[in-house]
């Protein structure tokens, strides 16, 4: 962009030179003001015709512009052209991919019926497997619950038997204690103490 601006500025400067009249050039050569020459309005012929100079001037301008264009403009436009080519190539590639995708989609849509049938079959098989698994799991849980219940019943039975046995023993002992107490006279009581003393005498220390 900067290069283009430079070219334009150079062109404007060159074109601006064209506005200078031959009178201006003569006045400049004699050291007089330009407007004085215009007042006289007489053509001055000095050497070659002015047109030739114009052409020479134009030729120099064109040579400069051509040089600048060749140095700055050509690479710029080449770069620009390469970019455009790349964009075209990318667009082409994208289009090709989109076409391929569209083709694949169309193919899938065409096979949708088969796909649905396959999915249904899979789902059905999966459901059957799941049902079997759940059945097995339920049977396992049932067996566990049954075993646990049996164990609990056995434990409760054992505890009840123990409690009953303890209660029966307590009743029997209480009954025995009552009978012994009521039937024990002084002589028997002394006899028990004597027996205890005899037992102590038998104990080895």
């Amino acid at each position: 962009m900067a290069k283009l601006i430079l070219i334009l500025v150079t062109a404007i400067v060159c074109l601006a030179q064209e506005h200078a009249t031959p009178g201006d050039a003569h006045a400049a050569a004699n050291g007089e003001p330009a407007h004085k020459t215009e007042e006289t309005a007489e053509p001055i012929v000095w050497g070659l015709d002015l047109t030739v100079w114009k052409w020479i001037n134009f030729g120099i301008l064109m040579a400069g512009v051509g040089y600048l264009f060749a140095k700055q403009g050509v690479p710029f436009f080449q770069e620009r052209a390469a970019g455009i080519l790349k964009d075209i190539s990318d667009a082409q590639k994208t289009k090709t991919e989109a076409d391929a995708r569209a083709a694949e989609l169309e193919s899938r849509i065409a096979n949708l019926g088969d796909e649905i049938a396959r999915m249904q079959a899979d789902a059905q098989a999966e459901m059957q497997n799941e049902a079997k698994r759940m059945e097995a799991e339920t049977a396992q849980s049932l067996a566990k619950v049954q075993a646990s219940a049996e164990q609990e019943i056995a434990s409760a039975t054992k505890q009840a038997k123990a409690e009953l046995s303890a209660h029966a023993a307590a009743l029997a002992i209480d009954l025995a204690a009552g009978r012994i107490r009521s039937g024990l006279n002084e002589g028997q009581s002394r006899g028990l103490v004597s027996a205890f003393i005899q037992d102590l005498e038998k104990v080895k220390n």
């Binding site: 307590a170 025995a176 204690a177 012994i180 024990l184 009581s189 028990l192 103490v193 027996a195 102590l200």
Partner: peptide, 26 residues
């Protein structure tokens, strides 16, 4: 004790009571 005797010497207990015998039986 109901009958018999219990003797405690230091930390040793000699139980010759009817209550003790009934407890053992129980």
């Amino acid at each position: 004790l109901i009958g018999g005797a219990v003797a405690k010497v230091g930390s040793l207990i000699y139980d010759g009571s009817v209550r003790g015998q009934l407890a053992t039986l129980r």
